[in-house]
Design a protein around this nucleic acid. Structure first.
Length: 1025
RNA sequence: GCCUGGGUGGUGGAACUGGUAGACACGCAGGACUUAAAAUCCUGUGAUCCUUAAAGAUCGUGCGGGUUCGAUUCCCGCCCCAGGUACCA
């Protein structure tokens, strides 16, 4: 029979499901191997061809590892909380759980028909209560922990309390808020419970902090960055402002150093590690306190020995990596939202400053960072003193300084920093050179070479010496110290949304307390609408009775053991305390999910100790590089935290990681001609307008082909030609009304490019019949082209439903089958590279599978294999492909193995090889790529059904590939002129003699001796003349 | 702006460590088979020039330089495209 992919694929998918062929065992004598994919967000548009790219690669790898004798864990699940489901719920009123369920079903059906070897018995969904129970549980562990710098790990908050009770705050080195109190043990004990809780919150790994959000007053809601375009909401176009809000945060900065160091221990792509390093952004420098100088008048210089800060109304602290340039500081710039701004601004400057702050609020952080051309700022009227020479320095605010970075303040050294330089030039502030070789005529010169000038006691010193001297002096004065700063900020852990994990916290006053562990999971409540409340509270504010009462479930022992976090003083029996209204962010559920797969149905723990000790970590993780600084950093953070609590065994969760490139959509465009209809009858302007309105519908939409659209704007001839053609095409209609076509005057809007569904475009040619059916208003459309075909334009864009460029794998599977899709996606190019989707070459892959099938069949399509011994040439083909596939899989170069399979099958076809000894091995080698066809052939070869998945991978024998001659390329001055077959046994000298003795070579040399002869054995001969 | 990646025929790409640029496939052109079409098979296919032909010459891996006997590969400068930029996931 011919290759019947539909029957074959259905048959084996069913077989695998029924026999649980890929169920992984938590107890096995085989070595373990954990292959993980980044689980998808189940969107309403369904799975598109970009999703499977990485999944196919990991599936090939998993299947290959099974053939190599590993116990492979290869699970799949859904990251099913998220914004789009909620947006859809807002529009339709349907519960997000419902649409999410539907979307998951679609995803599952689509995933199933691609033939993945997932162990579906371990599926997880982050939005399911038995999953998010554990997300909430981990949140509680974070709340109950603090970071002990001395031990360099997270510890129980109970330990901190015990320390406070015995020794007060002395000898505690913690990662915590800035404003912690200093107290003795007695003072601590004297604090009220509320005061103690308030203090402990400053140490907890998850805590409340003020942070900025996109506030849209018109919609009464906080918007995601994605929902804001140029300062306006994407939906509705309402203005958006930056607003401060109390939010849950995660103290990821506690782990900054470990996150940085850990990168050296994992096998990830170097660029990805580099992105994380840059994101963490460790910089070594110094913090310097500039004391405020409200009492001094203009021009006055304070006492040089003045101790910084004290008695002068506070100080502004800056962080700098170039403390050596401190004598070049001519102004300070602080963020417009810096807490001191209101306090230090003088009455004269108040209006300016407030206007500037208002302007800043309209800009997003990204806009502020991206715009380096516009210089803007406002003077506060305040001055600070340079701690080293007492010089008076004006304090400005400017939006290029971000409140969240460092201390939200910078010391400006215009001679050394370009940003400061432009600022100084713009506002006429002084620029003082501080290094002798500095050239600051046109721009700042950040050089570290040379000797210092204008710099007091460091004059004449070099960079290293000066830095040390300045820091020593600052420390002596108590005005600064050496400091390491990280660019990374604590991670905001809250969304003002419905469709996410509820935070297991209730409030007594403004203080948060954890609910009892026995009350987990805290279920998402039902609400009437998925919108914020009238007062601007998040949707959970709509839930009836969304408040905590001590649960009858919680035992007294449990309650007393949770002394610091729950209703521990007999409160709350009857009284109800409001729950947190925000939900957890998208990254919560995905920050630990790989552990749940290890033991997906455990309802006592997030995963059993035993399962975690067996699977340990992920051996191979495949996913997109767009997660570099989000998911992949948060996951490492949570993993390290869980490790500190001895809940997991590895410091790093993902041993090896491969980035798959993005599949982009290739959008197609049709070009609508913008025209007027006019009449030959003499009409007044008014009549003409009336007439147009009445007759517009009589002439259909006109689409011009791309070759016309490209030139019509600037070619008079083309315009005339096109109009003439349209007149001919529409003769009947136009005659009726005596009308004619007029194009718009402006060449820019003569045609409008419109997205057209890519599924009705083939190699840029529009299927006109389908197009007419696609939308009702296109039914009578008219098409103008030079070629007889309607050509579409194209652009590479993000794959998106709204751009009509989403390609669904279903159609391809219907037409060519899953094996073709799998191989084609790999054939497209290197896994790591982003590329636009196109199906131009899919025929070739399908033909290849058919050709492979044919090797096992005679001309009448009857299955026929011979048991004869293979020839040398056949063995050579086989072993070439064995080696190639081994090498390619190990380095994740799947595209090249597909090519090599094609070459092997072409060779075996030419050799008319149908020998079992060769073909049976070929089936095993190809099976990770095209599992269905291979299972079928494996069964036809007489093997037990399904045993292919665990068959041994063929062993490579190099003897079959030994060559004794090599066709050396002979080049003259580096350019290849000919090939000469030379025995590989010849050494370099003999090869040279052999080449020079050749008559053709002599012809090229024209009798002269070459200046130099380069021979690389087995590679090349180059003659320099 | 900043961080990261990419740019090779008409198209997707290959060339793994500095050693024959364009493997493999699509598309296109020509041919065979067929009443015809589909399918299949065969041949050709980077550009320019030259030649009856065989053959040959020059150019060519985003652009401009450099290192080298030799550069798609290494170095310097630039252009364009994509991803991330802290509430898309």
């Amino acid at each position: 029979m011919d290759y019947q992919f539909k029957d074959i694929e259905k048959k084996w998918q069913q077989f695998w499901a029924e026999n649980q062929t890929f169920k992984a065992d938590n107890n096995s004598a085989k070595p373990k191997y954990y292959v993980l994919d980044m689980f998808p967000y189940p969107s309403g548009a369904g799975l598109h061809v970009g999703h499977p790219l990485g999944y196919i690669a990991s599936d090939i790898f998993s299947r290959y590892k099974r053939l190599r004798g590993f116990n492979v864990l290869h699970p799949m699940g859904y990251d099913s909380f998220g914004l789009p489901a909620e947006q859809y719920a807002i529009q339709t009123g349907q519960h997000p759980a419902l649409t999410t369920e539907q979307n998951i079903n679609t995803y599952r059906r689509q995933l199933d028909q691609i033939g993945f070897s997932f162990d579906w018995s371990r599926e997880v969904r982050t939005s399911s209560p038995d999953y998010y129970k554990w997300t909430q549980w981990i949140f509680m562990q974070l709340f109950n922990s603090w970071y002990n710098k001395a031990a360099d790990k997270a510890e129980s908050i109970q330990k901190l309390v015990e320390h406070f009770e015995k020794h007060g705050s002395k000898d505690i080195d913690a990662v915590c808020d800035e404003d912690i109190l200093t107290f003795t043990a007695d003072e601590w004990k004297a604090l009220s419970n509320e005061e103690q809780q308030r203090e402990l919150l400053k140490y907890r790994l998850t805590y409340l902090r003020e942070s900025t959000v996109n506030w849209c007053a018109a919609l009464g809601t906080v918007l995601a960055n994605d929902e804001v375009k140029d300062g306006f909401s994407e939906r509705g176009g309402y203005p958006v402002e930056q607003k401060k809000m109390m939010q849950w945060s995660m103290r990821i900065t506690a782990y900054a150093e470990r996150l940085l160091q850990g990168l050296d221990t994992i096998d990830w792509p170097e660029p990805l590690k580099e992105m994380q390093r840059n994101w963490i952004g460790k910089s070594v420098g110094a913090s310097v306190r500039f004391s405020l100088s409200p009492t001094l008048s203009e021009g006055e210089v304070a006492d040089k020995a003045h101790p910084a800060g004290e008695g002068l109304g506070g100080a502004i602290e800056v962080f700098t990596t170039r403390v050596d340039t401190i004598f070049g500081v001519t102004f300070l710039v602080i963020a417009p939202e810096h807490e001191l701004v209101a306090q230090i601004t003088t009455p004269e400057q108040k209006a300016d400053v407030e206007a500037y702050i208002a302007q800043t609020k309209k800009k997003s952080e990204l806009d502020r960072m991206a715009d380096t051309k516009t210089v803007s700022g406002a003077f506060t009227g305040a001055y600070v003193l340079n701690p080293l020479n007492g010089e008076k320095i004006p304090v400005w605010i400017a939006d290029y300084v971000l409140a969240g970075y460092g201390t939200g303040a910078v010391m400006a050294v215009p001679s050394g920093d370009q940003r400061d330089y432009l600022f100084a030039k713009h506002f006429n502030l002084p620029i003082v050179p501080i290094i002798d070789i500095q050239n600051i005529e046109k721009e700042a010169d950040p050089t570290k070479e040379g000797k210092y000038i204008n710099s007091d006691f460091i004059n004449g010193m070099g960079y290293k010496e000066a830095t040390a001297a300045v820091i020593a002096k600052l420390e002596q004065l108590g005005a600064g110290k050496a400091r390491v700063n990280f660019r990374m900020r604590d991670a905001i852990f809250g969304r003002q949304r419905y469709w996410g994990e509820p935070v297991p916290v209730y409030f007594k006053g403004d203080l948060p307390y954890l609910i009892s562990e026995s009350d987990l999971p805290l279920l998402l409540p039902e609400i009437d609408k998925y919108l914020p409340t009238e007062t601007g509270e998040p949707p959970l504010g709509r839930a009836e009775g969304w408040a905590y009462k001590a649960s009858p479930k919680s035992s007294p022992e449990e309650r007393t053991s949770e002394i610091n976090n729950s209703l521990s003083h007999g409160e709350g029996q009857g009284e109800a305390f409001p729950y947190e209204l925000s939900t957890m962010p998208g990254w919560a559920g995905s920050s630990w999910y790989w552990y749940r797969y290890m033991d997906a149905h455990n309802n006592q723990e997030f995963a059993s100790k035993k399962a975690i000790e067996y699977w340990k970590d992920v051996d191979l993780y495949i996913g997109g590089s767009e997660h570099a600084t989000g998911h992949l950093l948060y996951s490492r953070f949570w993993n390290k935290f869980l490790k500190d609590l001895d809940l997991v065994v590895e410091e790093e969760p993902f041993k090896k990681l491969i980035n798959q490139g993005m599949i982009q959509g290739r959008s197609s465009f049709v070009y609508r001609l913008n025209y007027y209809l006019t009449s030959r009858q003499k009409l007044t302007a008014e009549q003409e307008g009336e007439w147009l309105k009445a007759n517009k519908d009589k002439v259909p939409l006109i689409f011009v082909s791309k070759e016309i659209a490209d030139i019509i704007g600037n070619s008079r001839d083309e315009r005339d030609l096109t109009v003439e053609r349209i007149h001919l095409l529409l003769k009947d209609v136009l005659d009726q009304i005596d009308g004619r076509i007029l194009l718009t005057e402006s060449s820019e809007n003569m045609v409008s490019a419109m997205h057209v569904d890519v599924n009705i475009v083939n190699n840029d040619v529009l299927n006109i019949d389908e197009f007419r059916k696609w939308r009702q208003d296109f039914e009578n459309a008219v098409f103008v082209s030079h070629t007889g075909k309607y050509l579409c334009g194209s652009e590479v864009e993000k794959m998106s439903k709204s751009k009509w460029n989403v390609v669904n794998p279903d159609d391809i599977i219907e037409r060519y089958g899953a094996d073709t899709l799998r191989m084609y996606e790999m054939f497209l190019g290197p896994l790591e590279q982003s590329k636009p989707w196109n199906t131009n070459g899919i025929e070739g892959v399908f033909k290849f599978l058919r050709k492979f099938w044919r090797l096992f069949h005679n001309d009448a399509w009857e299955f026929t294999v011979s048991n004869e011994a293979p020839t040398k040439a056949e063995l050579k083909s086989l072993h070439k492909i064995i080696r190639k596939v081994e090498e390619d899989i190990e380095r994740f170069s799947f595209n090249t193995s597909v090519s090599s399979f094609m070459i092997a099958v072409n060779e075996l076809t030419d050799l008319k090889c149908n020998k079992r000894a060769i073909l049976q091995e070929m089936v095993i080698i190809l099976s990770p790529y095209a599992p269905h066809i291979c299972e079928e052939l494996w069964a036809l070869l007489g093997n037990p059904d399904g045993s292919l998945s665990y068959a041994p991978f063929p062993k490579f024998n190099p003897e079959y590939l030994v060559e004794d001659e090599f066709a050396y390329p002979i080049s003259i001055n580096g350019k290849t002129k000919m090939n000469l077959s030379i025995p590989l046994s010849l050494e370099v000298k003999d090869v040279e003699a052999f080449v020079l003795a050749n008559a053709d070579v002599q012809k090229y040399l024209d009798g002269k001796a070459p200046k130099k002869v380069i021979v690389v054995k087995g590679r090349i001969v180059n003659l320099v003349v």
